[in-house]
Write a protein that binds this DNA or RNA. Structure first.
Length: 216
DNA sequence: TCTTCACAGGAAATTATCCA
DNA sequence: TGGATAATTTCCTGTGAAGA
């Protein structure tokens, strides 16, 4: 089924023709942290049926936003193309804009994942504060491990453990989401044991200053 | 109020791929 | 070549919006 078009000769409408449908930008968000298998995407996007997932991937593939790739052990997967990666600032801007509502707290029926919270934190990065920082932070939750690399005033987030983390943070995905939403400070989380940290003290010391949650 | 349409989602069937 | 697994397709149902 071909997605509907707004039928407008307008860049915004054309962009929304491509990525404005339900689930589409969330698929892009999932792929921002690295290639994913069909089953991984299904697991991350609960509520999205297999048929619709297949259709969305095909649509994004035709649009040149997503491409098929192969992981080690010759496992087939999906990855963002260069054009797809250009959506990263769009997704981060939406995350930053949405944080003010996320701050109201998590609803009972909402799931949370470490990778989502890490991306939300990334959206709040203060480039000036991060300008002189070079550090790798590994974040471990019960089910997931992601890592964030801060370098040259920017941060990248990826799935999996870091090779040489400066700091390893252990917490739950829910606490991480609260940190990203600004509902909890890192100092308080560390002080109350909701986050435990090990590694380089100076890299840990600078971490709270790197992020500036948006004001309501 | 009824009908039509678009869309989301689930379940099952089908197809493709990998590997022993 | 056959079994296991993953990916895709097809069909059906439910929901909500819009129009008659």
């Amino acid at each position: 089924m071909e997605p509907r078009s707004y039928g407008q000769y307008c860049p915004t409408a054309r962009a929304l023709d491509l990525v404005g449908e339900r689930w589409t930008l969330l698929l892009v968000r999932e792929l921002l942290t690295g290639p994913k298998r069909f089953g991984d995407l299904q697991g991350a996007l609960r509520g999205l049926g297999t048929g619709l997932l297949s259709a969305r991937l095909k649509h994004l593939g035709r649009a040149g936003i997503v491409e098929r790739t192969v992981l080690p052990q010759r496992v087939p997967a999906y990855a963002l193309t260069g054009s797809g990666r250009e959506l990263e600032p769009v997704v981060l801007a939406l995350a930053r804009w949405g944080l003010r509502w996320a701050r109201d707290g998590r609803r009972a029926d909402e799931t949370v994942r470490a990778a989502w919270a890490a991306l939300a934190l990334r959206a709040c990065l203060d480039p000036d504060a991060a300008a002189g920082v070079r550090a790798v932070y590994e974040i471990r939750t019960g089910e997931e491990v992601v890592h964030a690399r801060v370098h040259a005033g920017a941060v990248t987030v990826a799935d999996g453990p870091a090779q040489y983390p400066d700091v390893t943070l252990t917490t739950s995905a829910g606490v991480l989401a609260d940190l990203a939403a600004g509902a909890l400070t890192l100092r308080r989380a560390l002080g109350t044991g909701r986050v435990t940290a090990s590694g380089d003290d100076s890299a840990l010391e600078v971490l709270p200053r790197l992020f500036r949650p948006p004001h309501r």
